[in-house]
C-alpha cells in the first residue's frame, strides 16, 4: 500500500487497438481528498476512472484499491460509483427512486440474500441526505436532470462508501442545480469524510470545491492544488493557447 492511499495508480498505460489512450500515469488518492480530474474530451479521464474501478485492465502498470490489487479486490461496498449519464435513462424501464437507490445495497447484502428492513432504512437515510426522500416513489424517468443526479448520488451513498467516483456528474444539469450539486458533494467530503473523485471536462464548475486537481491529456500533466493550477501554465498545456480561467465567485 502506498502511504495509506485509497486508490493508487502505478505506471499505468492503457492502449486501445494499439492507440495509446493513457501513458505512464502515477496517481495516489489519499483519504479525505476531493480530487477533480480534468482535461479535454478524449483525454482519457473516463478511461482512468474505469481503470481505477477495475472495469478495464491496464495494458501496463497496476491499480490498487485500499492496498489490494484491483483484480483481487472484494470490498466493493466501500466504493460508490456514479457513471456518466450519457446513456440517457429516458424511455427506459419504469424504476422508482427507492428501487434504484436500493440497488446500491445489493453488493453489501450479498448474493441470494434478500434486502431487509435495515436496507430500507439505509435507502431512506441516503435519500434524506440528498434531499430526495419526498420523491421515493417517483419514477426516475420523471425527474429533472438535477434530481436524477441526486438519486444516483444516494444510490452510491447507500452502501456507506469510503470513496465515491463520479464521471461528468453534471452533464445536462442546469446551472443552479449544478451549484447545489457541488455543494452537496463538498458537504459529503467535509462532514462525512468521504473521499471524492470527480471527472469533468469543465474546470470552472469544480475548481471552487476541490482540494486537488489532476489534469489529464493522455499523460498526467499536473497534480496539485487548484490554486497552483489556475496560476500555472497548465491551462495552455491542457487545452491549447488562448484559454483563460475564470473563477466564479461564491
Amino acid at each position: 500500500m502506498s502511504g495509506g492511499a485509497v486508490i493508487s495508480v502505478r505506471d499505468v498505460t492503457f492502449s486501445y487497438r494499439e492507440e495509446p489512450v493513457l501513458s505512464r500515469i502515477n496517481l495516489d488518492i489519499i483519504p479525505g481528498d476531493y480530487l477533480g480530474i480534468i482535461g479535454p474530451n478524449g483525454g482519457g479521464k473516463t478511461t482512468l476512472l474505469k481503470l481505477m474501478l477495475g472495469l478495464i485492465r491496464p495494458t501496463v502498470g497496476s491499480v490498487e484499491l485500499f492496498g489490494n490489487p484491483v483484480g483481487d479486490f472484494q470490498e466493493w461496498s466501500r466504493i460508490g460509483y456514479v457513471p456518466q449519464k450519457a446513456t440517457s435513462i429516458e424511455a427506459r424501464f419504469p424504476f422508482t427512486v427507492a428501487e434504484v437507490v436500493a440497488f446500491g445495497r445489493i453488493g453489501r447484502a450479498g448474493l441470494l440474500r434478500r434486502l431487509k428492513a435495515e436496507d430500507r432504512r439505509a435507502v431512506d437515510t441516503a435519500l434524506e441526505q440528498v434531499n430526495m426522500l419526498a420523491h421515493r416513489r417517483s419514477l426516475v424517468t420523471e425527474l429533472s436532470g438535477g434530481q436524477q443526479q441526486r438519486v444516483f448520488i444516494a444510490k452510491a451513498l447507500v452502501s456507506q462508501p469510503d470513496i465515491m467516483l463520479l464521471d461528468e456528474p453534471t452533464v445536462g444539469v442546469d446551472v443552479q442545480s449544478q451549484d447545489d450539486f457541488y455543494h452537496l458533494l463538498s458537504r459529503l467530503n467535509r462532514e462525512e469524510g468521504i473521499t471524492l473523485v470527480v471527472v469533468s471536462h469543465d474546470i470552472d464548475v469544480i475548481a471552487n470545491e476541490i482540494s486537488s486537481v489532476a489534469c489529464l491529456n493522455q499523460t498526467l500533466i499536473c497534480h496539485g492544488s487548484p490554486q497552483e493550477f489556475i496560476t500555472g501554465e497548465y491551462m495552455e498545456k491542457l487545452y491549447g493557447k488562448g484559454r483563460k480561467f475564470i473563477l466564479h465567485g461564491h
Partner: peptide, 23 residues
C-alpha cells in the same frame, strides 16, 4: 426468484452492477 434483485440491477445498469461486485 433467486436472483431477482441482481438481475434487476443488471437490467438497470450493467456497469454499476459490476462495480458493486456482482458476478
Amino acid at each position: 426468484g433467486l436472483f431477482y434483485k441482481e438481475l434487476a440491477y443488471l437490467a438497470f445498469d450493467d456497469e454499476s452492477a459490476r462495480v458493486s461486485g456482482l458476478p
